[in-house]
Structure formats: C-alpha cells, structure tokens
C-alpha cells in the first residue's frame, strides 16, 4: 500500500481527530497521530489485514529546539518533542512512518516529562526502544512495564539528547567540565 492509501485507511477508521496530519512529500512519508490515541492506532496498524505492520523497525524521540538564539530565528520548526515510529510489514512489504507530537514539557513546566501511551504491548521491541527514548530524550511512556534508564546509569540526571541539556558539573566526584 502507498502512504496515501494507509493514510486513507487510518482516516476511515479513526477520523480527523486522531489522524491529525500527514506529509507525503517528505523523503519518508509520515502520518501524524494524536498522542492519546497512539496505542489504539498501533494495535490497528498491526492487526488490520490490509496493513499488518508486524515490525517496529525503530522508535525514537526527537527534540525540536534550537538553543542558540541567533539561529533560532531561522529555525524551521515549532519547538516540540516528537516520537517517531518507523514501521514495516513483512507480510505486505510496505513501510510507513508514524509521528506523535508532544509539548517539550508537560503543562509547560520545565522538568515535567511529556507523556504518551506505551506501545510495548503491541511490539515487544518497543519496550527497550521506549526505555531508550525515556533515558536520552525524556519522554514518559504511560503504561510501560519497566520504564527505567537503559544506557545511562540509574542516578543520572537529565536527558542528554534534549537540546537544552547541560552536562552536569560533577558526577560522584568526577568532574564534567
């Protein structure tokens, strides 16, 4: 199926409140889904006989922000955090990219992580990928069975792939800068 057909099929099932946008001109066509519905959409994407997206190739978080004030004027995106799901179907041999846009901080309070429902019950590999996105990008996956840091140590502070992340000055007696 082409990205347009996948988009149509999602629109038919969920409507415009859930399928909030799409971009077919991008190198990898993507469809945007409302954060609250991502788990149900994921279940549909995997189960629907026309779609059958049985493989989650990649799940990653992206922090859209330009911390440099001079460059920020030219920055082409609105500041936000996105969770990107790269899906592939071994059965139907097609691929699609699903995106979820979140605020950078929940309720705009710095330090409160944005929340999105987990998809680890749909694709088992999402368990680890979500742990990594939580660890590095700082996205809270609601309903995840074991959302702990995976690459950084447990007591690490902050989320290093955030654009405004500051390297800690000191960690257990080791100087950072």
């Amino acid at each position: 199926m082409t990205p347009q057909e996948i988009h149509k099929s999602l629109l038919k099932e969920f409507g415009e409140d859930v399928v909030t946008g799409a971009n077919f001109e991008a190198k990898d066509a993507w469809i945007e889904i409302a954060p609250a519905s991502i788990a149900t959409v994921a279940e549909f994407l995997k189960a629907d006989p026309q779609l059958r997206f049985d493989s989650l190739n990649d799940l990653s978080g992206v922090d859209y922000l330009e911390p440099d004030e001079k460059l920020a004027k030219k920055f082409p995106y609105e500041p936000h955090v996105a969770v990107v799901y790269h899906l592939y179907s071994f059965i139907n041999r097609h691929r699609i990219t699903i995106k979820v846009k979140l605020p950078r901080w929940k309720d705009d309070v710095e330090g409160r992580l944005p929340e999105v429902p987990t998809v680890s019950h749909v694709w088992a590999i999402a368990d680890w990928h979500e742990r990594e996105a939580y660890d590095l990008v700082g996205i809270y996956f609601v309903g995840h069975p074991n959302l702990v840091r995976i690459l950084c140590v447990e007591d690490w502070e902050g989320h290093p792939l955030r654009k405004d992340y500051q390297l800690p000055l000191e960690y257990h007696g080791v100087r950072g800068k």
Binding site: N57, D58, S60, V62, D63, P76, V84, H86, L161
Partner: peptide, 18 residues
Amino acid sequence: GFYIVGDGQAEPMRARAK
C-alpha cells in the same frame, strides 16, 4: 538503521543510529 533529521544547517538536528 540511521535516522537523520535536517533543519537547514550542515549539522543534523537529530542523528539517530538504530
């Protein structure tokens, strides 16, 4: 997998290695 997001600069805004 490599996932590259560009923002008009020479450095990618996101460089992910899956």
